[in-house]
């Protein structure tokens, strides 16, 4: 499953966002449009680490990286590349 689709499913299943996945835009603000709050971001980080088998450091846990599904997708891709290079 594509990274963005997995993130959308996490948002519904674990962060309890009410917007259906087919109505989520990849550039919608997680905070403003999808209503993710501070504890929701913590859950999103944990679930993304588990789903993609990556580590999201405190330095990467920023409003910029967690701004949209697209920006989080880009972060996940970078972390996967780093993990792959380390193998």
């Amino acid at each position: 499953m594509a990274i963005a689709e997995t993130i959308k499913n996490i948002l519904v299943s674990h962060v309890y966002v009410e917007v259906p996945t087919d109505q989520m835009g990849e550039h919608d603000s997680l905070r403003d449009v999808l209503g993710v709050d501070s504890l929701g971001f913590v859950e999103l980080r944990v679930q993304a680490e588990e789903a993609f088998d990556i580590t999201i450091s405190d330095e990467d846990f920023t409003p910029e990286h967690f701004a949209t599904i697209a920006s989080l997708t880009a972060l996940v891709e970078r972390r996967q590349q780093v993990a792959a290079a380390a193998v």
């Binding site: 905070r31 993710v36 709050d37 501070s38 971001f41 913590v42 980080r45 405190d58 330095e59 846990f61 920023t62 409003p63 967690f66």
Partner: peptide, 8 residues
């Protein structure tokens, strides 16, 4: 706004 990050 969130998420809070000490460095940010």
């Amino acid at each position: 706004g969130p998420p809070f990050n000490p460095a940010a």
